[in-house]
Design a protein around this nucleic acid. Structure first.
Lengths: 213, 213
DNA sequence: CAACAATTTAAACATTTGTTTAAAAAAACC
DNA sequence: GGTTTTTTTAAACAAATGTTTAAATTGTTG
């Protein structure tokens, strides 16, 4: 009777994609609880019933968006972690990438953290991604350099949050920081850009400049 | 006719406080959008109508809790910033305090960040608190030491997020970190405790150990 | 064109939501 | 003890929410 997409007839990609894009915007801004089906339909400029016609429920639509966001969150990170470059370069690239990601998606980190906290089960399908992070080249590369004595002894479990917390925290608390230091939107971007370099300096300085045995 | 508390008759503190405590738990866990009046009433073990009898609306009750949480978030921080101790001690104490605060209120940071982002106007009454942070002794103390050359040149605007991001990010992403590194709850606490010391080392090392002019 | 399937719409559905009402119960007061 | 005020309750309210229905429209195919 009513199936949106079948084998041959290519689905009216435009409508389905319009819904996805609208849902992405609305969910990222308001979260699952704060977003209503009508919000999304309005943002997409379509009838409410269509959201459930293409995706079967608000929950399913959300999962769809959420998993894409988790991938966006982790994929670029994993790619860099597996690059054949020095640890020093890798850390700088990771922070630079994090900055670009947050600049392009200022609410991504807060959204992911929040939704994972509110409903950890939804993360089930994303555990594979996180394992990719865990089992990337980064961890062994770090331990190798540690045992060589070229880098300060530290585990990846401690180093990784150090790398990502700085930029992400800036954007997680963007509204707060802007109010506290009376920054404009462009002022914040400049601030974050400067901060990025400080963070790279601090972390690499900490890791590589120390009293070697 | 019906005013809960008047000048003389002390309000049945027990009920009002039960509601506040329940609301605190529920709001911190689910956020404003995710929490329902019935959730709170159930958690407090009272009739739904009582939440609006003591506080006039869900919004008013939330503001009440939210502002307390923002104070909890900033007050201890400001106290330490105004202490007459060295910058080095101050930074260590700030991080230590942040850790204790997060340990006692694991969802506080995520809650505050999230609600500020969702509805920045609610922060209106809290701007004074943030100004206290801005205009504490910390900022001039830092610049004084910078001009003395005893500390690496950096502004408070950059240093403060560096101090607070590490611990708070750990707790903001607690669920994620636990899943990623397969930690138990106590495992996480130990991890965070160890992390705290690394962060103190990294920041003080960065600030105080550098090529002095 | 006719017949069928896919898409879109307006309207309604049952729940849930925040809030209010009016009466009952408890407490305070003289 | 009787009266008044304060607190608590059950029930209801309108509005909002996720979802479904059935008809209308559009598109496709023989």
């Amino acid at each position: 009777m009513k199936k949106p997409m079948d084998c041959i007839s290519l689905p009216s990609k435009s409508t389905e994609e319009r819904i996805r894009e609208a849902a992405k915007r609305v969910f990222l801004e308001k979260g699952f609880d704060g977003a209503t089906s009508r919000d999304i339909a309005d943002a997409a400029g379509i009838n409410i019933a269509l959201t459930n016609y293409y995706f079967r429920s608000k929950e399913k639509l959300f999962i769809n968006i959420f998993e894409e966001m988790v991938q966006l969150f982790f994929n670029g990170m994993v790619d860099i972690m597996n690059k054949p470059i020095s640890l020093r370069e890798k850390i700088a690239e990771l922070i630079e990438h994090d900055f670009q990601l947050m600049k392009a998606n200022p609410t991504l980190s807060l959204f992911v953290m929040n939704e994972i906290h509110r409903n950890p089960e939804r993360m089930a399908n994303c555990i594979g991604l996180m394992k990719q992070v865990h089992h990337s080249m980064f961890e062994e590369q770090l331990q190798q350099e540690v045992s060589q004595g070229t880098v300060r002894p530290i585990s990846a479990m401690h180093l990784m949050p150090m790398i990502f917390c700085n930029i992400q925290f800036l954007f997680i608390g963007k509204t707060m920081h802007m109010k506290m230091w009376q920054m404009s939107d462009t002022g914040f971007d400049e601030f974050a850009d400067g901060h990025k370099q400080l963070v790279i300096d601090m972390i690499t300085n900490y890791l590589f400049e120390f009293e070697k045995v």
